[in-house]
Simulated scan of single mutants.
Amino acid sequence: MKDTTTFSIPVLFNVHSFQTDLISWYLSIKRDLPWRLNQDPYRVWVSEIMLQQTQVDTVIPYFNQFMNRFPTTYDLANAEEQDVLKSWEGLGYYSRARNLHAAVKEVVASYDGEVPHEKDKLKKLKGIGPYTLGAILSIAFNQPEPAVDGNVMRVMSRVFHIEEDIAKPRTKKIFEDVVREVISHDDPSSFNQGLMELGALICTPQKPKCDQCPVQEHCLAYEYGNQTDLPIKSKKKKQKQTDFYGLIIQNKHGELLIQKRPSEGLLANLWEFPLMPKSELPIEEWFKQHYGADLSVNAKRGQVRHVFSHVIWNIELVFAQVEGEEIDYGQFVTADQLKEYPFPNVQYKMMDEIL
């Protein structure tokens, strides 16, 4: 494999024909998705943030309820963070929601609520990386900017037979340069969405539907017969596993102890049942140190496993009773009140075991 940092479009590659075939196909088959009703930059922005690392079918109901709740940049900017997180609840990768909220506040404060169309202004907003920047500029503002995600890298690696490891950060720049060379300047919105749609529906990771591909005649990997060998992607490091006790603690009124997670880090500002890292320290002693109250453990039963992108949590559920009324951290709520707070999916798995 060549170790290069640049890639040149083949001299005989018919860029205009490739653009025409891709755009014509896209316009004829594009899915009826709620964020495609118009090119409103705010709607495009919200959809692209939600679609990061999340399937389209999963995003659709979240997008609809989110836009109903926060239909304009002003509505989102004026919302409380806990309300935003509650609307995002279950979608995962919650830093996306917090960054979107912060960035929209900046749009309202600095740009009168209008999403800026200038590249230098847009890329300074929190949470907008190269892909989201290109998606907004091309889809909403018809600017010929590349929007390169995993789908696009897979399509272009096959079309141009690019043998660079897409797991390496520097490789993305190669694909951005390639897309910038071949993108339609007449309809960049349809071109970029066409590449995304092609990767999602036809040029799939396994068993690509080459017989249905609108750009088959342009595809070098198809010509060579090794399309399933591309893209090249090195394996990720094995995920770390962390073991916890999940403490299901009631007071004498039958209320449950929950707490808000720190404002930084994984699952920031969401709510949870207390999680105790497993160690040689007795649960009762650990709880006394951290919460200032005595605890009586009733039983250990039930296991919950949750996989994040970089770590796996293994949680053993512990049912316990707190002595007295005062604790130093957290708050007690009824089972009915739990639905008022934004919880991450891992905590809902715990709820399924106890409610």
Results as ranks from 00 to 15, higher is better:
residue 1 M to C: 11
residue 6 T to Q: 13
residue 6 T to Y: 02
residue 9 I to V: 03
residue 13 F to R: 02
residue 14 N to K: 00
residue 17 S to W: 02
residue 18 F to H: 00
residue 24 S to V: 01
residue 26 Y to E: 00
residue 27 L to Q: 12
residue 29 I to D: 05
residue 30 K to H: 04
residue 30 K to C: 01
residue 32 D to G: 00
residue 33 L to Y: 04
residue 37 L to D: 03
residue 38 N to I: 05
residue 38 N to S: 15
residue 45 W to V: 08
residue 46 V to T: 12
residue 48 E to K: 11
residue 51 L to R: 07
residue 51 L to G: 03
residue 53 Q to V: 04
residue 58 T to I: 15
residue 60 I to M: 00
residue 60 I to P: 00
residue 65 Q to G: 08
residue 65 Q to I: 11
residue 65 Q to N: 06
residue 72 T to K: 11
residue 75 D to C: 10
residue 76 L to S: 12
residue 76 L to E: 06
residue 76 L to N: 03
residue 77 A to H: 10
residue 78 N to P: 01
residue 85 L to A: 07
residue 88 W to Y: 12
residue 88 W to I: 14
residue 89 E to A: 06
residue 95 S to N: 14
residue 96 R to D: 05
residue 97 A to H: 10
residue 100 L to K: 11
residue 104 V to A: 01
residue 105 K to S: 11
residue 108 V to I: 09
residue 114 E to F: 15
residue 118 E to I: 11
residue 119 K to N: 08
residue 119 K to T: 04
residue 119 K to D: 09
residue 119 K to M: 09
residue 122 L to K: 10
residue 124 K to P: 05
residue 125 L to P: 14
residue 125 L to N: 08
residue 127 G to D: 02
residue 128 I to K: 05
residue 128 I to R: 03
residue 130 P to E: 10
residue 132 T to V: 14
residue 133 L to K: 01
residue 133 L to S: 06
residue 137 L to R: 07
residue 142 N to S: 09
residue 142 N to M: 02
residue 146 P to F: 00
residue 147 A to P: 09
residue 149 D to N: 13
residue 151 N to T: 05
residue 153 M to I: 02
residue 153 M to Q: 10
residue 164 E to L: 06
residue 166 I to D: 08
residue 166 I to E: 06
residue 172 K to M: 00
residue 178 V to H: 04
residue 179 V to T: 01
residue 180 R to F: 15
residue 182 V to W: 01
residue 185 H to L: 05
residue 189 S to A: 04
residue 190 S to Q: 07
residue 191 F to C: 11
residue 191 F to K: 07
residue 192 N to L: 00
residue 194 G to Q: 14
residue 197 E to P: 04
residue 197 E to H: 13
residue 198 L to K: 08
residue 200 A to G: 12
residue 203 C to S: 13
residue 206 Q to S: 15
residue 210 C to D: 04
residue 212 Q to A: 05
residue 213 C to H: 00
residue 214 P to S: 09
residue 218 H to W: 07
residue 219 C to W: 03
residue 224 Y to H: 12
residue 227 Q to H: 13
residue 227 Q to S: 09
residue 231 P to K: 01
residue 232 I to F: 07
residue 235 K to P: 02
residue 238 K to V: 15
residue 238 K to I: 15
residue 241 Q to N: 15
residue 242 T to A: 14
residue 245 Y to D: 12
residue 246 G to R: 06
residue 248 I to K: 08
residue 251 N to G: 04
residue 252 K to F: 04
residue 258 I to H: 08
residue 261 R to Q: 13
residue 264 E to R: 14
residue 265 G to I: 11
residue 270 L to W: 07
residue 271 W to S: 05
residue 279 S to E: 06
residue 288 K to H: 10
residue 289 Q to T: 13
residue 290 H to D: 14
residue 291 Y to D: 07
residue 292 G to N: 03
residue 292 G to E: 02
residue 292 G to F: 03
residue 293 A to Y: 06
residue 296 S to C: 09
residue 301 R to K: 15
residue 301 R to T: 06
residue 302 G to L: 13
residue 305 R to G: 04
residue 307 V to F: 10
residue 307 V to Y: 14
residue 313 W to G: 09
residue 315 I to F: 12
residue 315 I to V: 10
residue 319 F to I: 04
residue 319 F to S: 09
residue 327 I to F: 02
residue 332 F to I: 09
residue 335 A to E: 12
residue 336 D to P: 10
residue 337 Q to K: 03
residue 339 K to Q: 14
residue 340 E to M: 05
residue 342 P to S: 10
residue 343 F to S: 10
residue 346 V to E: 03
residue 350 M to I: 13
residue 355 L to C: 00
